[in-house]
Design a protein around this nucleic acid. Structure first.
Lengths: 148, 148
DNA sequence: ACTAACTCTACAAAGTCGATATAGTTTTAG
DNA sequence: CTAAAACTATATCGACTTTGTAGAGTTAGT
């Protein structure tokens, strides 16, 4: 399960991507339209800003907008910012590898071998699907038969 | 990330599957060999027993053994018993569906559409890979090119 | 009967999650 | 120039989950 926070972040990014670029969007508007607690969304957008995904303008006519094109922001990137590693085991994480303390030998760990496959296919979807893909109903080519 | 408990459960099942069938194995032996806290493992094996995956004999010469052949116990089944739903969103779970309270309309939810694909590929691995697959170094046919 | 093993239930320490609170800072309308 | 609207930042909180521990009971072999 992904966290509520990550779901909010993705919905907010989708909302921003649907907006005409140039003019910033109020946090309050996104919060209302998407049913997200405003103060909570403020934290989330701030995180995304610190990571360079969105930009903001302060003051009365302020607001948020995407800093990068929607087709360069993958679901995986957002999830890693908000929820941390995607890998199902610490010893399979690329961004935060940690040895499993209790496991004898990584190379021969049966459980690890199976979850390495899970990690592969999961990343295959999350790192190759962008906010733009999510909006356009287009299915990325590499997934076409999975859906059909 | 899967829980430590689920990892323990899978390692215990792998250990049981490696044992010659017929004679039960002590919890204490598994706990020691696999570096699992004994009392914690007792709870886990009890869960698995209640769900019909393993059987036990009490008394001095007691112990645990697989109740079903190792090639009929999938990783997905074990994960659902220990960690609950595999789906990345409550509205995508087969065993514990729950509507996302804050989402407008399920059918048009962009986030849901993407994670439905994640759920598909994840289940594809977890529900088709068994304890026996994990032990035998055999790669299941449907995954052969993913690994190569 | 003694002992080694499984069976239950309860509890606890620590961490996480989802959110709220509070106190700023910046910009612009008027 | 000042008040309001909007973003920034940090602290805190309650509920829940996770990862175990504890302890009392049950069963069965010798």
């Amino acid at each position: 399960m992904i966290s509520q926070k990550a779901k909010y972040a993705l919905r907010a990014l989708v909302a921003l991507a649907k907006q005409p670029p140039g003019q910033p969007t109020f946090i309050g508007d996104i919060a209302e339209n998407e049913n997200i607690p405003k103060k909570f969304l403020e934290q989330i957008l701030l995180d995304l800003k610190h990571q360079g995904l969105v930009a903001s303008r302060r003051g009365k006519a302020g607001g948020y907008g995407l800093l990068r094109p929607a087709d360069t922001i993958s679901f995986g990137e957002v999830l890693r910012i908000i929820d941390g590693p995607i890998a199902p085991l610490p010893c399979l994480s690329k961004i935060a590898y940690r040895r499993c303390e209790d496991c004898h030998e990584e190379a021969s760990c049966e459980v690890r071998r199976v979850f390495a496959q899970v990690a592969d296919v999961t990343r295959g979807v999350l790192d190759r699907t962008t906010i733009a893909d999510a909006i356009g109903h287009r299915v990325p080519p590499y997934l076409r038969d999975a859906v059909a």
